[in-house]
């Protein structure tokens, strides 16, 4: 083989190796970016779930109020009973509330003041479930009975589906 051909062959091989190295580097970068993107997406979904929970726990349709002043961490018993019925505002207006709650399930467990202490009264307030594993959040709240002016202990369970 002549000297010129050898030099050209060397140049081509060097170029090929360079391109392969750059390609490998790029593939590595793409892979890392993909992993980071998936992590960011997961964080974003978690953030969305928390935002939904925040919306639910501050909903005027559930919270107690005294002369219009909202009390935090307190839900109104009569609003809860009304909303756990078929004709409750969450069920009847599901198009509106689906935008607020997304795929979720909201349940309230009354922990005190039950007629049968062994069986806490359960109120299912909203249900629009999707088959995947949900993030579950629990909030201890007061359940206010304004006719007796008494508070009961209750647990608000919010399952948010991704």
């Amino acid at each position: 083989m002549k000297k010129g051909q050898v030099q050209m062959g060397e140049t081509i091989v060097i170029l090929l190796i360079f391109i392969i190295l750059v390609g490998l580097g790029f593939a590595f970068y793409a892979r890392i970016s993909k992993i980071q993107l998936a992590q960011e997406q997961f964080a974003l979904e978690e953030q969305r779930a928390i935002q939904r929970v925040q919306t639910i726990t501050h909903l005027p349709e559930l919270l107690c109020s005294t002369d219009g002043v909202i009390a935090n961490n307190c839900v109104d018993l009569y609003k809860v009973i009304a909303n756990s019925n078929e004709g409750g505002v969450f069920n009847v207006n599901n198009v509106f509330y689906e935008q607020l709650f997304g795929f979720s399930r909201i349940t309230l467990y009354q922990l005190s003041g039950n007629t049968d202490p062994q069986n806490p009264t359960t109120y299912i307030l909203y249900t629009n479930e999707k088959g995947e594993e949900p993030s579950v959040f629990y909030f201890p709240v007061l359940l206010h009975d304004s006719s007796q002016n008494v508070n009961h202990y209750a647990l608000l369970e919010i399952k948010v589906y991704r």
Binding site: E61, Y78, A82, N83, G88, V89, S147
Partner: peptide, 24 residues
């Protein structure tokens, strides 16, 4: 106003329950 419509509706449903309280 759309939000108020649903919140007012919620208070309406609440009154349906309040109406059934015995001894009123």
């Amino acid at each position: 106003y759309e939000t108020l419509h649903y919140v007012a509706n919620d208070y309406f449903q609440r009154m349906n329950v309040v109406e059934t309280i015995p001894d009123s």
